[in-house]
């Protein structure tokens, strides 16, 4: 019975680490587990110790998934930092001419509080913008290239098959429906959100190139409807990111430490999907 006590202690320890998901328990406690987790029992209990000397090293297996390869994690964090800098300095740049209309007469479209901006003055903000645009662009290009080449994009790319799943998921998040069963790493709404950010990133990059070098890339300016409209698109791309970020951060908060930590370590403990 000493053995059983030890198991009980261990599972207590593990519960401290992950308060939300009970650890799969050894078979001796099968009656304490229910539902889908019971199916895991056979696997977990498999390497039962034969030799009493090895009792203390009895392995308890944990379900885990290596969700985020290193390239994705690096580009995610470099991009997150760059995006913060680009938005904050971009808003300071916008303050210098807060309009999309003519210079004369100039109308203030949006008075952005200085405290939300970075750089102190236009020149300082431009320095931040011109520095982090390279990090932003590089992280985006590497991210997309890695997704495509590795095939990893299949976990996150929103396709027409995900269309039907968006609404039920959205309903669930607004407490209007039960949670649809998890099929893969990401649900349809997540796929839509993540795929959109690639669109926002591409739009901000291309319009940014035009605003940086309108004469050299006049053909690209033409595609966006001219220099003037390009500035509107550039702003719109930022609005896209600003729409994504609060929802993204809220979901990260909602899903707890283990989920957040997976974007740092790559490993997700006890993922909720089964594949």
């Amino acid at each position: 019975m000493e053995n059983a006590d030890q198991n009980a202690d261990r599972s207590e320890d593990q519960k401290k680490d992950m308060p939300e998901k009970p650890e799969p328990l050894p078979i001796a406690k099968a009656d304490a587990v229910e539902g889908t987790e019971a199916k895991l029992e056979t696997v977990v209990a498999d390497p039962a110790p034969a030799d009493p000397a090895e009792e203390t090293e009895e392995p308890v297996l944990v379900r885990a998934a290596y969700e985020h390869p290193l390239a994705i994690r690096i580009t995610h964090w470099v991009n997150a930092i760059s995006l913060f800098v680009m938005v904050a300095s971009g808003l300071r740049i916008f303050r210098a001419f807060p309009s999309f209309g003519p210079k004369i007469p100039e109308k203030v479209l949006l008075d952005i509080p200085k405290s939300l901006t970075l750089g102190g003055w236009l020149g300082g903000a431009l320095q931040w913008h011109f520095t982090f645009m390279w990090f932003f662009a590089a992280s985006g290009v590497v991210y997309v290239a890695y997704q495509v080449i590795s095939g990893h994009f299949r976990t996150m790319l929103f396709t027409s098959r995900d269309m039907a799943g968006v609404w039920p998921m959205a309903r669930h998040y607004f407490f209007l429906g039960s949670k649809p069963p998890a099929k893969g790493q990401y649900n349809p709404l997540q796929k839509l959100a993540y795929t959109s950010t690639i669109g926002f990133g591409l739009l901000s990059l291309l319009t940014g190139i035009v605003l940086f070098k309108p004469a050299q890339f006049s053909w690209l300016a033409f595609l966006f409807g001219g220099f003037h409209l390009t500035r509107v698109w550039h702003f719109a791309a930022m609005c896209g990111f600003l729409a994504f970020i609060p929802g993204h951060l809220f979901m990260v908060l909602l899903h707890g430490w283990s989920n957040f930590f997976s974007m740092l370590s790559g490993w997700k403990r006890e993922p909720e999907y089964q594949e």
């Binding site: 593990q14 308890v60 885990a64 998934a65 690096i74 470099v78 930092i81 370590s265 999907y273």
Partner: peptide, 28 residues
Amino acid sequence: MITRLEDKDLKRQSRRQLLKLAPVAALG
């Protein structure tokens, strides 16, 4: 893809992968 591994292995792997991310901290 889900794998099953011992808790201490998961912790070790997680730590190792976390360290690989250290260069990003240079942006600090």
